[in-house]
Amino acid sequence: MKNIRIIPRLDIKGPNLVKGIHLEGLRVLGSPEDFAEHYYNAGADELIYMDVVASLYGRNGLMDIIEKTAKKIFIPLTVGGGLRTLEDIKNVLRAGADKVSLNTIAIKNPNIILEASRRFGSSTIVVSIEAIKQNDGKYMAFIENARESTGVEVFSWAKKVEELGAGEILLTSVNNEGTGSGYDIELTRKVSELVSIPVIANGGAGELEDVVNVIKQGKADAVSLASMVHYDYVKKSMVNGSLLKNQAEGNIDFLKFGKISEKIETSGIEEIKFYLKDKGINCRK
């Protein structure tokens, strides 16, 4: 029986877990390892680490975070952001990641999907598609955290990455990302019906019903969440102030004042799964 996966997505900048809106305007939320361990214990099915400014910073910090995490959490860990070569992929896997997520390099050199899936196995290669809906209704793929357009249309690209050997697609609606306005159902459904590999819906969850909708109507095989679960953990941790202790840099005003987007109803992993089960959606308890 198919079970839907709930996958927290942790955007990482330097040593910090961050969160933005439309992949921009980053806020510091805490240490990624703390959040990862919390989600593991709460019953997350997998985790995604996305190095959001990979091209601008050194990589050693990220490797260190992956190594520390992999020693503590025993669920699949996908790492993405700035991976450019087979050597980069190998290094991330050796640090303890189970899968890698490729976007920019996959668009610039699609053949890397073929090479990487042959060398590391299809199940190790996740292709991330950052989709922006255009005024004419077309969905186009973007790279570099959605800063750069590519001229590549999302649906034909999804089909192509499957043919090249990708094991999964991480599908982000950049329009909806971080807004809490719900997933892009149309986008998700179309891609999911087009390919036989699993599609992870990402971007836009604001309330529990959004998660239900993207599974039932959007046909998502897995759901990635950031703000909804991060802010839930932040709220619960605010009480003892523990999240503030290791913050030395970045925009931490949010942590000091605790203001959370009003559009996002926060929920923990357990609450999400309880809700899904109640709506007749199978998932790991």
Binding site: I4, S122, S123, G167, I197
Partner: peptide
């Protein structure tokens, strides 16, 4: 068999 569920199976099962 390519019926009902997607192949490959990726995820948790009992």
């Amino acid at each position: 068999p390519a019926v009902n569920d997607k192949v490959p199976q990726v995820g948790w099962n009992q």
